[in-house]
Nucleic acid binder design. Structure first.
Lengths: 213, 213, 213, 213
DNA sequence: ATGTAAACGAGACGGTACGTCCAGTCTTGAA
DNA sequence: TTCAAGACTGGACGTACCGTCTCGTTTACAT
């Protein structure tokens, strides 16, 4: 898990220098993350202000600014601490089954309160590159690596075609979920996710080509 | 093209009552839209403020508020007036070719300055439902309908499987583009778009199943 | 009377250009000055914050910042508008009588609520040269000129010695009053002021020297 | 010399109980007072913050707060320790000469860096009664007693009129100096101080009255 | 030698006010 | 009736210091 506070602490005590001064208040840290996440869930990004988080956490604004450099960083930290852990990967030995199961779960979670948090972070990320970077490195990329491992196994077992580009495949499977999350043309639910995955797995064409590309 | 101003004018002169008073300044209207779009392109959503638009357009803030109810509406109007017309649909008689060609073009356009405008609108749309609605009804839905028509034709010609769900298919083809637009894990370019489309069209599996679903 | 607002207005309409835009809200202006003065009287400089003045005047902070550049400028404006007009000059034909009468009145006024306002302004003036300059040009200097005129008349009538330096004389007569105001060794009251003035007028020495200096 | 630290130390060891624990760090104490005075001289009251003093003295904020209860107390302590000792009293046997000599010296010192420190203390004293009390008891009153002694001697020797009120006389002589210090209408220099003193000593009137008051 | 007690550095904490930026509304005179 | 100009209320921003607090460390005296 990535947390700017952790980084700061690490930076402050690089090797063996004994830490001095009043230690960080872990209760305040937890309250801030909890408050950040709750506000994001309840009010979305519109109501997510540092002042609101401080008030709800019962904490001074300065305490927040001491540890998180921006709104986006705080939102990310709240997301990672509170809601990100809810998604885990299955492992059944079948790439197709595992991925569909995982995509269903992701759709279900993103379709709920966690989705509101995510949209907020991504919206903030459009205006602040650091937030986007934190999201990518702290959340998106790690998840992709997990999913990539499943795809790899599927290819090795002969389940999936060897010619596929794994990165592109991940875009094809996860892209639609983010699309529905951010452009609410229709709700994001597990049934839709499974149908979408099935379309991508089986392709759209009537006949399988002998040679392709 | 949707423009609140048009609606307002229409509402103001419902049947035949002759309009009186100073007529709307079309030069101001054009300058505002142009300024909105330019700022969006240059500064992204962070620098897009009503005051900045007014200053750049050489127009009073009130003039903007008279015609557009919110920041998001103005961004949408600027987008529609200036950058949206750049994307058109081909028609070659082959669904696969037409869609790939279109996805390439969309990727190219979204990968440039227009993409910055779009991310700004979508970010704003996360906080303001009206902006999102305007985007969906004024831009996303119409484009989907065009694409859907191509898919339909493909099905009717036997090019595409009859069982596919057209809406889901559109999600599968367009989702990844929005994903790459909003989550910049990697750049958005035509080559990637074609590869992605190919993956979806041909599917990922090694063998075609006899019965599916 | 000096008022930054007046300067701004004057600067905005230098010659004949017709003023445009919403006119300044005079009620708000008056409420701000009144609130500033009241807070100064009641709480002294410690409680004099822009936020407190805004709250009491029922006005937005920005409205204050639009017209007064600093705390000190606002305090000065409040002082000039509300409490400065209370002191006027007598004119009886006798410099001694006039000055004593005036010094008594000044001591009485500075010994009351107005004195608290003055100490606040002078304290603020120690940290902000602009405040001090505004105080000197807008209040102190004009009063000195009035007093100087009386002294002049006294000299011309032969009441006062011709050799005296008028500026130094003013320091000698007014200095003790500011001293008692700012260094409260003892209260500031009219009796003391008259005694003090008498000492200065008549001198301290037992015998008049034939030649001096 | 008054120093809260002295008081505290005295209070901590009232009778005979031997003191235990780490002794006060005199180097830190000296560094703090030096830093306080230097900052007051260089930046005036505006730059005089506890944090700045601590940083300059290379000391923790807590060490300051342990010994001085407030900003004003610290400023006073710095003033007394560093700059106050610079003024001493002459003794020539002539009240007039001694006082003029002393007033010249005071004007010279207050016209320089020491003056900046004094204005800072007096400004702070307007907001904090304790600071003002410390200034009066620790500095102003003792100096007045010294000056009063000279005046007394002058009266006893028949140099000065017996009817004069000594307190009022002190106000008349020192008031103008504080006035020029705090209201910089003109610079504070020895020539002016002597002229002023001469005016007060000799009075302003053309003729000596037969009976007065 | 070893406690014990106070002083010290470091720095986190809850707060207050700052001065600024924009949002969105309102009021005027001119076109 | 629209427009330019610009004043208004109001909310949040990020910063600077305040005065308090909690630590781990240091220093000297008392045992």
């Amino acid at each position: 898990m990535i947390d700017i506070a952790e980084k700061k602490r690490a930076a402050a005590a690089p090797t063996g220098r004994t830490r001095t001064g009043r230690p960080r208040d872990e209760a305040a840290r937890a309250a801030i993350l909890k408050a950040a996440d709750t506000i994001l869930e309840e009010k979305g990004i519109g109501g997510f202000t540092i002042e609101a988080v401080a008030a709800r956490a019962g904490v001074a604004k300065t305490t927040i600014y001491r540890w998180w450099p921006s709104k986006g960083a705080l939102a990310m930290a709240g997301f990672l601490a509170e809601t990100a852990p809810k998604i885990s990967y299955p492992n059944s030995g079948s790439a197709l089954a595992d991925l569909i199961s995982q995509l269903r779960r992701v759709a279900a979670v993103y379709g709920g309160k966690t989705g509101r948090v995510l949209t907020a972070i991504l919206a903030e990320g459009q205006r602040d590159p650091n937030t986007m970077a934190a999201f990518i490195e702290g959340y998106a990329r790690p998840r992709r690596e997990e999913a990539k491992a499943i795809l790899c196994a599927g290819v090795e077992r002969g389940e999936l075609r060897a010619e596929i580009d794994l990165e592109v495949t991940l875009d094809a499977l996860y892209g639609p979920i983010y699309y529905r999350l951010l452009v609410p043309l229709a709700p994001l639910d597990p049934e839709w996710a499974e149908t979408m995955a099935t379309h991508v797995f089986f392709g759209l064409l009537t006949s399988k080509p002998t040679s392709q590309h």
